[in-house]
Each structure stands twice: as C-alpha cells, then as structure tokens.
C-alpha cells in the first residue's frame, strides 16, 4: 500500500444528501453530512430516532429500495465513488468490502435457511469455493463469534437461536468475507442489557482481531462512549457535533449533545430514563422551515442567531459543532442546562 493510500481515510463521505419525495412534500432525511472513517477506526453515530442515521449508511451501499429516493454527494471508498457505481459493481463491494449488521436479529435472517446456509451464501457470493469448504468456514466463523457447539449449530434454523445468538450468527455472516468496514446499525437495541454488553464486547474483540473499521450506529451515548474512537452526533439529518470520543465526552459542545448525555446512566449504576433530559418532540423531517438550527425549537438557549442555519465550526483539533453559542461560555451554559433539568424533574417528581 502506498504512502498516500495509507493516509487516506477508508471511507470519505462528502456532503451526502438523501431525500424522499412523498405525498406531503420532500423529506430531507439526510441533509448534507460529511465525515470520514479511518482504517481500523470505530466511528460512533448517535442521534435520536429519525435523525437519519440508518438512511445515511444505507444510502452509502445503495440499499435504499425506494424509487422516490434521491441520493446526492460523494461516497469515496478506496478511491471509488460508490454513488456512481451501478448495481452490479456495488455488489462487489457489498458484503465483501463493506458488511452490515442490522438492528433486529429476529428478522435479519431468512427463516427457512440454516445458519450455515446463510454464511455459505455470503462466502460463495464473493469467492469461488466449494459448498463443503464454505460450510467448514461457517463452522469456524460460528466458533469465532462464540457460538458453542458450532458443528451442530451450523445446521440450526434462525428460530432455534435466541436473540443474542442470532445476532452472533449475523455478525459471523457479516465478517465471513473479511470486510474492511463493518456497519452495525443499532446491533444491540433489540437485545436485553446483559446480552447487549456481550455483543459489544464481541464486536470490540473482533475489531482488534480482524482490524476492520466499524461504523456503530446507536442512540445510546453509553454504547458510544464504550466503543468508539470518534463520534458523530446527528440531528434532523445534519451533524450537530463531531469529534474524538474523549474530547466529545468530556467537553460536549452542542446543547443537543448535552441533552443526549443526560441519557447516559450515572456511574453509580442507577438507571435513569432514556432521553428524559431533552424536552419536546424530535423534528418533523418534512417541516419546510429548514434554514435554521433545527434543534432551536427544543433548545433552552435558542435566539434569533439560530437562523440562518449555522455551519459546522472546528473549535479544537478535530472537534466540530454547529451552534452559535460563544465557544468559551459553553461549560457554564452546560452546567446551567443540567441544573434546569434537575430542578424541573425534581419539581415534577
């Protein structure tokens, strides 16, 4: 690999826009986001439901099967713009270079085929190997993702696995061609808490073993803080904030991120209700009034300055956000936001 290739990010998304034409007007599900994923990096994408996390990653692989959907921008993967490839060329990338794991393992596997069949299909889609060889590799992969008794379980049907085990099968399938990028779209949301932790640990182990990059989509700040090297915070199809995990967790800049951080369980183990800290409903993506900070309708610090739409500004190295509040006052304002929430929830209790 040449010097310049190594320096290049694995995935470089530039000004990605995804819109759906619907009866009630155009929905800008993803509204001009740019980010990169480096080699071996874990990028966390957080945001509330409907913030465009899934749509943005699905559009990268051309997996949005909707004739009313328009995707614009550039998605440079290993020097190629994926958005310019036709379906046949994309198939070469899908599963082989970039693999995906979806939220609900209950429905991600075709119910009439065994675990081994699913994994073999994935392998044989990209490599010329015999059925037998693919089957043997399926067993190894099931071993690698921690499924006990893999020689028997390879012949089990999806309904014969528990949710966590099924997600392991899906992960084994996703990893079967050694992809350089794994996109995991809320891989643990449908699982209960202890299984969640196991699956995350598995992903982390596999990542260090195979060295692939991971894009981890979640709406749980806790998951992001455990797993990722860098974090994107999305709201209404735009980036609200982006930065290295440490900086972003220690000094979150955007009021929306402050709200999301209220959803992290405190370290003493008591569990707080998720997202109780952000009042108001998420933005309606078909709202035509978009030349503003979309979060301003729910933000305690909103002012006339939130219009027109503020751009992303880099404050410290690699740490950006799109908010007009003065940078040096953010810590004080955050403290204020926290105490307001505390007194409000105290009053209502």
């Amino acid at each position: 690999m040449s010097e310049s290739m190594a320096a290049q990010p694995l995935l470089d998304v530039r000004d990605l826009r995804v819109s759906f034409r619907t009866r009630s007007g155009t929905v800008d599900a993803v509204d001009g986001i740019s980010f990169t994923v480096g080699r071996g990096e874990v990028l966390g994408i957080v945001g509330e439901s409907g913030s465009g996390k899934s749509v943005s990653m699905l559009s990268v692989l051309g997996l949005i099967d909707n004739p009313n959907c328009v995707v614009e921008g550039e998605v440079i993967f290993q020097g190629e713009d994926l958005l310019k490839l036709d379906d046949k060329e994309l198939r070469r990338i899908r599963g082989k270079e970039i693999a995906m794991v979806f939220q609900d393992p209950m429905t991600a596997l075709t119910p009439v085929y065994t675990a081994g069949w699913h994994i073999s299909e994935q392998i044989r889609a990209h490599e010329k190997v015999s059925k037998k060889a693919a089957h043997a590799r399926a067993i190894q992969l099931l071993d690698a993702v921690g499924i006990p008794n893999s020689t028997d379980r390879v012949n089990s049907y999806p309904h014969e696995f528990s949710g966590g085990m099924r997600q392991r099968v899906v992960i084994a399938m996703a990893l079967s061609c050694n992809p350089s990028l794994l996109i995991a779209d809320e891989p643990t949301t449908a699982l209960d808490v202890t299984i969640q932790a196991q699956i995350l640990e598995l992903l982390r182990d596999l990542q260090s073993e195979f060295g692939s990059s991971i894009v981890l989509i979640t709406h749980d700040m806790g998951v992001v803080s455990q797993m990722s090297d860098r974090v994107l915070v999305m709201y209404g199809g735009r980036l609200a904030e982006a930065g290295p995990r440490r900086a972003l967790m220690r000094d979150p800049l955007h009021p929306y991120t402050w709200g999301l951080m209220g959803s992290i369980p405190p370290t003493d183990g008591t569990r707080v209700e998720r997202l109780a800290a952000i009042p108001g409903a998420p933005i309606n993506p078909s709202d035509p009034d978009r030349d503003r900070c979309l979060f301003s309708s729910r933000c305690g610090f909103a002012s006339d300055a939130c219009r027109p739409q503020p751009g992303l500004v880099e404050h410290v190295h690699g740490h950006l956000d799109a908010c007009v509040l003065p940078y040096d006052q953010r810590p004080a304002l955050r403290l204020e936001a926290l105490t307001t929430v505390m007194t409000e929830s105290g009053a209502s209790a």
């Binding site: 699905l58 692989l61 997996l63 899908r94 599963g95 082989k96 979806f102 075709t110 994935q122 889609a125």
Partner: peptide
C-alpha cells in the same frame, strides 16, 4: 421484499 432479511440479503452482495 420489505422484510429485513431481504435488505440483509442485498447487503451480502448477492444478485437481485
């Protein structure tokens, strides 16, 4: 065709 497993199958890179 709207099921998750179809999207998964497409994501595997198999033909339509």
């Amino acid at each position: 065709m709207n099921e998750d497993y179809i999207r998964m199958a497409r994501a595997k890179g198999i033909g339509e």
